[in-house]
Simulated scan of single mutants.
Amino acid sequence: MARPAVVITGFGLRLPGANSMAELLRLYRSGKAATRPLGGELTGFAGGRVGDPGLDALRTKQMDACAVLALAAVTDALAMAGLGKGPGLDEAGVYVGCGGGGLESIEQSVLDWHQRQDVKSQTLMRCMANAPAAQISITWGCKGPSLSYAMACSSASHAIGEAVTRLQSGRCQRVIAGGTEAPLTQTMLRIWTAMRLLGQGPEAVVRPFCYERGGLLLGEGAVFFILETLEAARARGAEPLAQLSGYGAWSDATHMTAPNSDGQARTMTLALTDAGLSPEALGHVSAHGTATLAGDISETKAVKAVFGAHAARLSVSATKSFHGHLLGAAGGVSLLASLLAVREGFVVPTVNFGTPDPELDLDYVPNAAREGVDIRHSLCNAFGFGGSNASLIVSRVE
Rank of each mutant, 00 (worst) to 15 (best):
V342D: 05
D252L: 10
S245K: 01
G97Y: 02
V365Q: 10
A271Y: 10
V119K: 04
S315F: 07
S321L: 11
N381G: 01
E41S: 13
F45L: 05
G100Y: 02
F225C: 12
R36N: 08
A81N: 06
R213M: 05
T273A: 04
R234M: 13
A73Y: 13
S391W: 13
I8C: 09
G295W: 06
S154C: 07
Y149K: 08
E104Q: 07
E231N: 11
F45N: 07
H255M: 13
D56A: 15
P87R: 07
D363F: 10
L230I: 05
R313E: 14
L360G: 08
E203A: 09
Y211G: 03
V342G: 06
K61V: 15
G324Q: 11
F224N: 02
D112E: 14
G237E: 05
G276A: 14
S155P: 15
D296T: 03
C98F: 06
S245R: 01
G102V: 15
G97C: 06
L217E: 07
Y149V: 10
A294H: 02
Q135G: 00
L15H: 07
A318T: 05
A265R: 10
G354C: 13
V303I: 15
R343Q: 12
R343A: 12
Q173F: 14
L362E: 00
L270W: 02
F307R: 11
L293W: 14
A242C: 07
